[in-house]
Amino acid sequence: MLKLGILDQSPVFPGYQAGDAIRHTVELAKQTERWGYSRFWVSEHHDTSRLAGSSPEVLLAALGAHTSRIRIGSAGVLLPHYSPFKVAENFRVLEALYPGRVDLGIGRAPGGMPIASQALRYGRPKERDELFGETLRDLAGFLSDRLEPGHRFEGVRAAPLVETAPDIWLLGSSGFSAERAAELGAAFSFAHFINGDGGHEAMRRYFADYRPGPLGRAPRANVCVMVICADTEEEAERIAVPLDLSILLREQGQFQRPFPTYEEAVAYPYTEWDRLRIQVNRNRMIVGDPKQAKARMLAFSEEYGVNELIVVTVTADPQARLRSYELLAEAFALRG
């Protein structure tokens, strides 16, 4: 049976404020737990007016308090910006609060423009890619109290000293994170919603090259994809129009532009090249009525060789987003 989880980026819907976006995220987690989704992940973005989720650790504390069963996690903490010791302590606090329910998803993307990355690192130099594996090993050591003998921080323990640890997932939209996940034993999530190309090969190599390591003992994987589901195919296509334009504008560097309304998207002066880009970007999403969406999601998961999809749904209307998740839960007969 295909499992479904959710990635929520706390989008700021047209006509709403950032505070509303955070409250929408909390309400969505409560509702999707009732509908039977397996996990609820939140993202990290910086210096943007479009997405309100900048601190997954803080948001997860609230989500855990408002839910009781669904797994909660980050997708992800952008580790190159931070001390692995502090990340370990943040997630040990979450594990103490909600034992057995926490996923620590790790990414290496900047999460914003270069100036925001510089502010996050506060003058520290950018971490080189070849050091990412070492940082991950340190994180695992702090979470398990098993730093390698002779490590410069040997003896330092991440508080609180809890008996359980969060599951570690590496997130990526290329083969790099898949390789690191296989090398270090982590679970792996491919961001198809970011990159519609190369994911199948990255996933194949992950399973082929996997070996147990400090981040895990057995291979586990899922794929994150955009899905818009509505009662009819026509309505789903209508809801997808603003998302098509939003993705196009981001590709053109318009990161601060608010998420468009349907009316704005219809009136936009598209060029022939714009329409070609929209067609290509549709490879990153599944759009349709419940029957169509289910069939396409099942085929999509089989192509990737995974039994779990993480769904991200961004619309111009919060009610349309809720309805999309509700219809998917009904189509897959999820159980709360």
Score class of each variant (00 low, 15 high):
Arg282Lys: 12
Glu235Thr: 15
Tyr37Asp: 00
Trp273Leu: 09
Ala329Ser: 14
Gly155Phe: 12
Thr315Glu: 04
Pro125Asp: 10
Asp129Met: 08
Gly36Asp: 05
Leu147Pro: 09
Arg128Gln: 14
Gly105Lys: 05
Thr32His: 12
Leu328Gly: 13
Glu272Lys: 04
Gln9Leu: 13
Gly73His: 03
Thr315Asp: 06
Tyr98Phe: 15
Asp244Pro: 05
Leu147Asn: 11
Trp169Asn: 02
Trp169Val: 00
Leu94Tyr: 06
Arg108Ser: 05
Gly111Ile: 00
Arg23Ala: 01
Thr32Ser: 14
Ala293Leu: 08
Ala88Pro: 02
Phe332Gln: 04
Leu143Gln: 07
Ala21Ser: 11
Gly105Ala: 05
Val312Gly: 04
Leu298Asp: 14
Gly107Phe: 05
Asn90Pro: 01
Val93Lys: 09
Pro99Tyr: 10
Ser38Pro: 01
Val266His: 05
Lys291Asp: 13
Gly15Pro: 10
Glu33Pro: 09
Arg296Lys: 14
Gly155Val: 12
Val311Ser: 05
Leu4Gly: 06
Thr135Phe: 03
Gly155Ile: 14
Gln9Arg: 12
Phe300Asn: 09
Leu171Pro: 09
Ser83Met: 09
Gly112Pro: 01
Gln252Ser: 15
Leu143Ile: 13
Ala295Ser: 15
Arg217Asp: 08
Leu147Arg: 09
Ala202Asp: 02
Arg108His: 07
Met226Ser: 15
Pro11His: 08
Ile6Glu: 01
Arg321Ile: 03
Tyr37Arg: 12
Ala119Cys: 06
Ile168His: 00
Gly64Pro: 10
Arg146Trp: 01
Leu120Arg: 07
Arg92Ser: 11
